[in-house]
Simulated assay, not measured.
Amino acid sequence: MTTVTVPPPAVETLAPRRKARRPFGPASIVKYALAILFLLIVLMPLYVLIVTSFKSGGDIGVTSQWNLPEHWTTASWAKAWTSLRDSFFRTFQLAIPVALISSLIGAANGFVLSRWRFPGADVVFTLILFGMFIPYQAVMIPLRDIVTTLGIPPGIPTLVFVHCIYGIPICTLIFRNYYATTVPEELIEAARVDGAGLLRTFSRIILPISMPGFVVTIIWQFTSAWNDYLFAIFLSNTRNGPITIALNALAGAQSPDYAASMAGALITSLPTLVVYVLLGRWFIGGLMAGSVKS
Score class of each variant (00 low, 15 high):
Leu127Asn: 06
Thr74Trp: 09
Arg281Met: 10
Pro271Ile: 05
Ile174Thr: 07
Ala232Pro: 01
Val48Phe: 06
Val42Gly: 10
Pro208Gly: 07
Leu49Cys: 09
Thr238Gln: 12
Phe161Gln: 06
Trp72Lys: 07
Asn240Gln: 06
Tyr258Lys: 06
Leu279Ser: 15
Arg90Glu: 08
Val147Thr: 08
Thr126Arg: 10
Pro23Gln: 14
Asp145Ala: 15
Arg21Leu: 11
Ala95Gly: 04
Arg176His: 08
Gly131Lys: 05
Ala78His: 04
Ala259Phe: 03
Trp77Ala: 11
Ala180His: 13
Phe54Gly: 09
Trp282Phe: 15
Ile105Gly: 05
Thr74Asn: 05
Phe89Ile: 01
Phe175His: 07
Lys293Val: 04
Pro135Asp: 12
Ala225Arg: 00
Leu127Phe: 14
Asp228Leu: 02
Ala191Trp: 07
Lys293Glu: 11
Ile152Lys: 11
Pro9Phe: 09
Phe89Pro: 01
Ser210Gln: 06
Tyr178Arg: 03
Ala80Thr: 03
Val274Trp: 14
Ser203Trp: 14
Val274Asn: 13
Ile101Arg: 07
Pro142Ala: 10
Ala107Ile: 00
Thr82Ile: 05
Ser76Glu: 15
Thr52Glu: 10
Leu84Phe: 03
Ile152Thr: 09
Ala15Trp: 04
Ile219Met: 13
Thr272His: 11
Ala253Met: 12
Thr217Val: 02
Ser64Gln: 10
Thr201Leu: 10
Asp257Gly: 08
Ile128Arg: 01
Leu150Ala: 11
Pro26Asn: 14
Ile218Phe: 10
Tyr276Glu: 10
Glu12Met: 05
Tyr276Pro: 01
Ala251Trp: 00
Trp66Asn: 08
Leu94Ser: 03
Ala99Pro: 01
Met44Pro: 02
Val48Met: 13
Val193Ala: 15
Ile245Ser: 05
Leu14Arg: 14
Pro135Ile: 01
Pro9Met: 07
Val4Ser: 11
Phe214His: 05
Thr172Arg: 02
Ser261His: 13
Thr217Lys: 05
Arg200Phe: 02
Ile146Pro: 06
Gly252Lys: 04
Asp122Leu: 10
Ile101Glu: 07
Thr126Trp: 08
Ala232Phe: 02
Arg22Pro: 09
Thr149Cys: 08
Val216Arg: 02
Gly155Cys: 07
His163Gly: 02
Ser224Tyr: 05
Pro157Gly: 12
Ser56Asn: 13
Ile245Gly: 08
Ile50Val: 13
Asp59Gly: 08
Thr5Met: 11
Leu127Ile: 02
Ile209Met: 12
Leu129Asn: 14
Ile41Arg: 14
Thr63Ser: 14
Asn237Gln: 09
Ala10Phe: 04
Ala75Val: 11
Ala196Met: 09
Arg281Leu: 09
Asn109Thr: 00
Asn240Ile: 01
Leu143Tyr: 09
Ala249Lys: 10
Gly213Met: 06
Ala108Ser: 07
Val139Asn: 12
Thr158His: 05
Gly264Glu: 06
Gly280Cys: 11
Thr74Gly: 12
Ile174Phe: 10
Glu70Phe: 03
Leu278Val: 14
Val275Phe: 13
Glu189Asn: 11
Gln65Ala: 08
Phe92Lys: 01
Leu159Val: 03
Phe111Ala: 08
Asp194Gly: 09
Ser53Asp: 07
Thr5Asn: 11
Leu49Met: 15
Ile41Asn: 14
Leu46Pro: 07
Pro135Met: 12
Trp282Gln: 15
Lys55Gly: 04
Phe118Ala: 07
Ala10Tyr: 03
Thr3Arg: 13
Ser114Phe: 00
